[in-house]
Nucleic acid binder design. Sequence first.
DNA 1: CTATTTCTGTACCGATCGGTACGCAAGTCG
DNA 2: CGACTTGCGTACCGATCGGTACAGAAATAG
Lengths: 199, 199
Amino acid sequence: MSGTARDRGRPRGFDADAVLDRAVEVFWRRGYEGASLSDLTEAMGINRPSMYAAYGNKEQLFRAAIARYAAVDMAYAGEALRQETGFAVIATFLHTNADALTRADRPPGCLSIQGGLATGSAGVAEFLAASRLAGEQALAERLRRAVAEGDLPAGTDPAGLARYVMVVSEGNAVHAAAGADRASLHRTVDIALRAVPGG
Amino acid sequence: MSGTARDRGRPRGFDADAVLDRAVEVFWRRGYEGASLSDLTEAMGINRPSMYAAYGNKEQLFRAAIARYAAVDMAYAGEALRQETGFAVIATFLHTNADALTRADRPPGCLSIQGGLATGSAGVAEFLAASRLAGEQALAERLRRAVAEGDLPAGTDPAGLARYVMVVSEGNAVHAAAGADRASLHRTVDIALRAVPGG
DNA sequence: CTATTTCTGTACCGATCGGTACGCAAGTCG
DNA sequence: CGACTTGCGTACCGATCGGTACAGAAATAG
């Protein structure tokens, strides 16, 4: 009963998280279908069977990559939700988002959108849409509180405003992927904020 | 010299434009990489060699499909540019765009974005980005005139405003592809218009 | 030590990818 | 009527796709 039947056998020769980061980057640049297993395993530095043993198959690897992406590259969103006022939440989210979309050490744009809006395997696009929707709902919840607390005007529709914010963020992601620079994204955010009560 | 060496030989057994419309729909639904030649030729109702003879190869077929899409499914954009004031141009564009993104007889979203943000063949994404940019510049030109004519406030940045409008439109396209309904797109547009001088 | 378990690397699987060779059908020319 | 030109349909090409069988290597358990 000492070894919990898990430490037996040959130990894994790679760090699963570190290797997953390389997969994130490949999916981000090439999309789900554009990233072949050869691309992925080469970037990850492991062989194909090791990848299958660790993650199952390509789609499960992609889902793991999205989870890792959300935890690492979208941490700024959680930060934004912790701002004190509804307007500050939105302004912080959009501006930090603009920065995240144009980091020099990462692919431009957003993995959730680059990954595959239109893809042969139906599950992938729906999975991505669902994870974006989860973020939108978290924002709507925060804005609902802002209305209740009075720092957004009574009568403001929190869900509609949250959707607007996500639309701006996703549109910026499309522009960033097409090569728009950081300053122009921030300029767009400044215009967009004029539509937000308090801006 | 009667027949200009073009009417000779067996005549083509299909209407090139009608067949291209079917290709548009396949690319729209599945993206550039997700649409296989088998998918395409089956939907077009022609054989592979007929497609190659008529269009060259898959990428040229895609470019032809984009051109056809711009002429047919984005005609509303030209209409919007002909509105009388800068605000009317933007409002008309965004609202007719919301309708176009959710037509019952067409795939949801926008071919230019569904087609392939991230794709293996580098040329495709750049071509799509360039065609979106052309629309943005046409809008900027129209808004520049609106500032000159005084129906947008002096000091308004036409290029920045045009980019903002395209960002909203592209963000809405992402949402439409994920299944958002027409009403919620229009609600987003109404919020977005509050950022536009005159809204 | 041997037995057992688990990971690694090679080498391969059938399916599908984009693209094409080639013979036949269907027209216009003289 | 041939002679010629062009599109159509079958049947196929090499390359690459996602996924795996299998044997050897590296660890623990006894």
